[in-house]
């Protein structure tokens, strides 16, 4: 233990293994750094930027920054909390997030982080983009209004399912999740409800067509316990999602 290299995260020593990112090491040590696109089982993406931390005068994403010895990393600062709040607000403003009617409400990691960061409103003008849903699959529904372009589905589909069904397409604000089929519809792919990719979406974009709203308000994942205290989970992952 004492031989293992360490860095400091908010003054706390975090041991790390060679090749670790700051996020991987912190995650293993049970220290929460807010994140949405990071998942310990999949390669890092670095797109949501929620995991920004300060390190030697620079702001970097913890999920892509390699850990190194004697680093002094700061995460829970007033400035970074404010930056994360604004990033979350940008994510809300750029999509169409109607929480009251969303199947994932209460179990949504975007929403849970917003709660945790004290968000009460969007701050930015909502973009109200027009995004096309996909209902072609018999068991799955795609609501792109809620997509945050994190590519977790893409990575899970490739790394866990070995199907590589999901990908990101478009540019800029028109970036969107797409599917590897000739007609571009999910229903024409080999996607199955049991796939890992069907159960990795941190928001309510990839959903089963049935069995939604199983829990009453108050009994859902993030109704009582904030995300920083229990980590990024989904209600259908048996508590293993983020471990």
């Amino acid at each position: 233990m004492s031989d293992q290299p360490q860095f400091q995260l908010d003054g706390q020593p975090i041991p790390f293994q060679p090749g670790d990112t700051i996020m991987q090491a912190a995650h293993r040590a049970g220290v929460y750094i807010p994140h949405l696109c990071f998942h310990p089982q999949f390669r890092p993406h670095g797109s949501c930027r929620l995991c920004v931390v300060n390190m030697q005068g620079k702001t970097v994403s913890a999920c892509t920054q390699p850990a190194s010895i004697d680093l002094e990393v700061h995460s829970e600062t007033t400035e970074l909390r404010q930056s994360r709040l604004r990033l979350i607000q940008l994510l809300f403003a750029e999509g169409n997030h109607f929480c009251p009617s969303c199947e994932t409400s209460g179990n949504c990691q975007l929403q849970a982080l917003a709660y945790d960061l004290g968000m009460t409103h969007y701050h930015y003008d909502p973009f109200y983009p027009t995004r096309i849903p996909d209902g072609s699959h018999p068991e799955l529904f795609i609501d792109r209004d809620r997509c945050i372009q994190c590519d977790l589905c893409g990575r899970a589909s490739e790394q866990a399912d070995h199907k590589a069904i999901y990908l990101l397409a478009g540019r800029g604000q028109h970036t969107h999740v797409a599917f590897r089929s000739d007609d571009g519809e999910l229903g024409s792919t080999q996607a199955q409800a049991e796939d890992r990719a069907s159960h990795v979406c941190p928001v309510g974009c990839i959903l089963p067509k049935s069995g939604n709203y199983p829990d009453i308000a108050g009994a859902r994942l993030y109704d009582q316990i904030p995300i920083h205290a229990q980590g990024n989970h989904r209600r259908d992952d048996g508590g293993t999602h983020d471990d």
Partner: peptide, 15 residues
Amino acid sequence: GACAINGGVPAMRNH
């Protein structure tokens, strides 16, 4: 409430 803050359900007509 949601509608005052982000338009809410009525804003679904914005497309």
